[in-house]
Nucleic acid binder design. Structure first.
Lengths: 207, 207
DNA sequence: TGACAATTCATACGTTCGTATCACATCATA
DNA sequence: TATGATGTGATACGAACGTATGAATTGTCA
């Protein structure tokens, strides 16, 4: 395991952690390399040394956050049998991931309105997640369990649920006094989002 | 109409417009007062003079963008009769507003992950919009047209639809080649989101 | 028209930013 | 233990930032 001559992974990891927390909370521009290195207990030059630049560190953070989410969603998409159950499983996995770790949607959501192209790790995750959902939608339309309509729009209707939960968790907390990170509530929120997603795309003439 | 001794509203308006466009596209931090004043054809000091500070200008922009959306949604919430129709009308109004003018969700979505309190204009609009939806939900639960469940979570399921359309318009365009700003598609997207929202909260035992 | 307030302008100030520089410490290997 | 690569540290640099300042201009009333 010791590829590096020294055990250099230490500060590198701490930089990644500190950067993730700060980027999530304040965004890229509002977070200075001094903020990050101070919080990581590292020297000012550490980011340049380990990552080359602030932006490269940012992309590393994105990758470290987005990849696990996409993996988990992809796994959920393969677990269940029927298309509707698959959709529900995907949404549940998404919500559970996102309520324990809202980093990915927070970061993604800051990038979406930008004009610039999405950073590659985010774009890839987005594609994988929406692809998993759309596959289930198309399969469901074939066997009649999902109602007719543009698969892309139906996918959006499904994806919006868990995504919004991740981003609007703060609203739930402030307006409704309901913290989706609390394990007691998490199951309820996940169940609810999954049900809503299922109902939104299920074929009414069958259900 | 001329409250101001001079017709000073000219540059002031241009500053608001330029700032809105840039804040939407790049966010607050990535937009400098020099960007704004240059684009508005104004002097560097114009923002300080007319608004006092960059942040005050930002809040003015937020108010000018968020207020019309909340007004439109509130009006839509009063137009229809039954709770489900009201929900559908709200979502339609929301989507139509947001596809022609995605500024409000773009700005809001950048603020949501922040730790700091929401800027007042955004918080107020958020409250008004979610309140309008929740009113309809509660009414629908009373008359049985909306299924049982936490009204807050059902509200979230509804609000996520139009909101996500506003934010993910870019994704629709890039992944699916479907531009929701195109009037031809707008109606389809609005209809679709409204249907999805209705299906997500409708009482299945009745429908 | 003359005077005064409102506005626009050019420019300066102090701060913070990301990165570069180069000296120093640490450790594996010979 | 000498050596050389790897990592860490203190500090410097130039650029960009938001705002302040005071002069020049503009427009409106007496």
């Amino acid at each position: 395991m010791k590829q590096h001559p020294k055990r250099s992974g230490d500060i590198r990891e701490r930089l990644l952690d500190a950067a993730r927390e700060l980027f999530v909370r304040q965004g890229y521009d509002a977070t200075s390399v001094r903020d990050i290195t101070t919080r990581a207990g590292a020297n000012l030059g550490a980011i340049t040394y380990h990552f080359g630049s602030k932006e490269a560190l940012y992309h590393s953070v994105l990758a470290s956050v987005a990849r696990p989410l996409a993996d988990r969603v992809a796994a959920a998409g393969k677990s269940a049998e029927g298309p509707l159950d698959r959709i529900e499983a995907i949404v549940r996995a998404f919500v559970e991931h996102v309520t324990t770790q809202p980093d990915a949607p927070s970061l993604l959501v800051r990038e979406l309105p930008n004009r610039r192209p999405l950073p590659p790790p985010l774009a890839e995750t987005m594609k994988r997640n929406m692809g998993a959902i759309m596959d289930a939608i198309v399969a469901g339309q074939r066997d009649g369990s999902v109602r007719a309509g543009d698969p892309l729009l139906l996918t959006l209707a499904v994806a919006s649920q868990p995504f919004f939960v991740g981003v609007a968790g703060r609203v739930l907390r402030e307006v409704g006094g309901l913290d989706p990170r609390d394990p007691a509530n998490r199951e309820r929120v996940a169940h609810h989002a999954a049900q809503a997603a299922r109902a939104a795309v299920a074929n009414p003439t069958v259900t």
